[in-house]
Computed example of a mutant assay.
Amino acid sequence: MTPAPAILPDDPDILRDMIVSLQTEVARLSASARVYAALVQSLKIRIARLQKQKFGASSEKIDREIEQLELLLEDVKIAIAAADPSPDIREHDVSDGVVSSPRQRGKPKVSDTTPRERLVLDPGEACPACGGPLRLVGEDVTEILDFIAAKLKVVETARLKKSCRHCETLVQPEAPSRPVPRGMAGTGLLAHILVSKFDDHIPLYRQNEIFARQGVDIPRSTLIDWCGQAVAVLRPLTDLIRQDVVKADLLHADDTPIQVLDPRLRQAGKPRGVKEGRIWSYLRDPRPWGGSDPPAVAYWFSPDRKGINPQTHLAQFRGILQADAYAGFRDLYKPDATGTVHVREAACWAHLRRAFH
């Protein structure tokens, strides 16, 4: 920002030093801007090239590399924004005459169901200049999106005991059920812990730190027990989802590797004690061809990739299965003892494309 003339010194030597200092700072910022711009362009080109290879071999590794590059690109853009907080100011490079365009900022899309709070700033009823009455001619409305921090609360349930004045019978309401027997966690807290861990990938020790900042110290061992007990409570629901998904007449199937801890490997002399398990996913989504059933996904875990796993998962499935050419699916396509084919194969074009590209 240019200082006001009233605070500038009168000494020509001091002014000359100030100009030299400002020119040096401008040159440094311009050089930094060019370096950032080149780095951003390089990262975008690398990400674009990797995305073109997305359907090639080892696409899972490419996905992970794209994620890492996008994180790096995000950090670079944050550094640019920190150096110049205003996205509307254009930077002029006098040396080569290039004017960089302002940073692009996407406007947040706010749902109609988002709560709104209206603050009205009223200048009053009398004119501050002459004291005359004011009349409303319009208003200017601006919006600020704010965040209300989550907070924990303790819900006390008091069960009153009453005795009958005639027969001395004690009467007390039954205690309400809890998602975790004899546990202190409510349904909202359990849902938050599970979503934070399995969807937002926040480890339990970090959740412990977050809760401690809110005034509640929940030991990590307790969080682990709550997660396990909540999974047990939800297991009937997952079983129902699986049963409903395999009733569809068309499924998309795929599996993805996952690192699994195995204590037996440590005993065998392998210090990491990690092996590769599998997450099997079966997707039902009839929306592209006008189906009325809601989309759903069923997941299974297995410690290996043996063909018996999908054959067990889809033992009751009857219909078309779209999957890759994994040999473990082949027995599903074979006719049974009566010669009836229960599962028809629909080959995956994305996997087939890998043989050519």
Rank of each mutant, 00 (worst) to 15 (best):
L152K: 05
L152A: 01
L152I: 13
K153D: 13
K153Y: 15
E156L: 08
T157N: 06
T157D: 04
R159Y: 14
L160F: 15
L160N: 09
S163M: 13
C164T: 03
C164A: 01
R165T: 12
H166I: 15
V171L: 08
P173F: 01
P173I: 01
E174S: 13
A175K: 07
P176R: 10
S177V: 12
P179H: 01
P181E: 06
A185C: 05
G186V: 02
T187Q: 13
L194D: 06
V195Q: 05
S196Y: 09
K197F: 01
K197N: 05
D200M: 11
D200Q: 15
I202N: 11
P203C: 03
R206L: 00
Q207I: 07
E209W: 02
E209S: 10
E209Y: 06
I210P: 04
F211Q: 05
A212Y: 07
A212W: 04
V216T: 07
D217E: 15
I218L: 08
P219H: 06
R220C: 13
S221L: 03
D225R: 13
D225C: 09
W226P: 06
G228E: 13
A230T: 12
A230N: 02
V231M: 15
A232T: 15
A232P: 02
L234H: 10
L234S: 05
R235Q: 13
R235W: 12
L237P: 01
T238Q: 12
D239W: 13
I241A: 08
R242I: 04
Q243R: 14
Q243H: 11
D244H: 14
V245M: 02
V245W: 03
V246K: 06
K247I: 10
D249K: 14
H252C: 02
A253E: 00
D254K: 02
I258W: 04
I258C: 10
I258S: 07
Q259L: 11
V260S: 03
